[in-house]
């Protein structure tokens, strides 16, 4: 075995998962955490009632590649672009993925606002992991 092979296992994708603002529906977030874990990612689970500031702080300390936001409170058109802007303002090279209940017409709006991907309730485990890998810088 060469040293290079060992390095591959040392570069797992790191994902910060959080719910932003007042939104208590975290079952989906827990399901996604498990999917990512089973897909070989390291999930830093922040859970409920996070702010853009607390998420940015965690991303910096954890050197995460991706922020995964779960949204079930119809606040996505406000909160997701706010998160994208906070990432840009901080000068971070991190992708924002949004999951949850996002009406079809809003998906394009979010993507236009800089969200890297939007995952709906039907997303399979393979899709979730593939998208995480494709938007990661690692």
């Amino acid at each position: 075995m060469s040293g290079d092979e060992a390095d591959t296992a040392d570069h797992p994708v790191r994902v910060v998962l959080a719910k932003l603002g007042l939104d208590g529906h975290d079952r989906g977030l827990k399901v996604v955490a498990r999917m990512l874990r089973d897909g070989g990612c390291e999930v830093i689970y922040l859970g409920l009632r996070q702010s853009t500031e607390s998420i940015i702080a965690a991303v910096e300390q954890e050197d995460a590649d991706i922020i995964g936001l779960s949204m079930h409170n119809a606040g996505h058109l406000t909160l997701a672009p706010k998160m994208v802007k906070a990432v840009a303002d901080a000068g971070l090279d991190v992708s924002v993925i949004v999951g949850g209940i996002i009406p079809d017409p809003d998906v394009k709006t979010l993507l236009d606002a800089g969200v890297a991907a939007v995952l709906g309730p039907g997303a399979s485990s393979d899709e979730v992991v593939a998208i995480a890998r494709s938007v990661s810088r690692r």
Partner: peptide
Amino acid sequence: SGGAILGDRI
């Protein structure tokens, strides 16, 4: 899988 859920921060 090599993956992990890191849940202490919370």
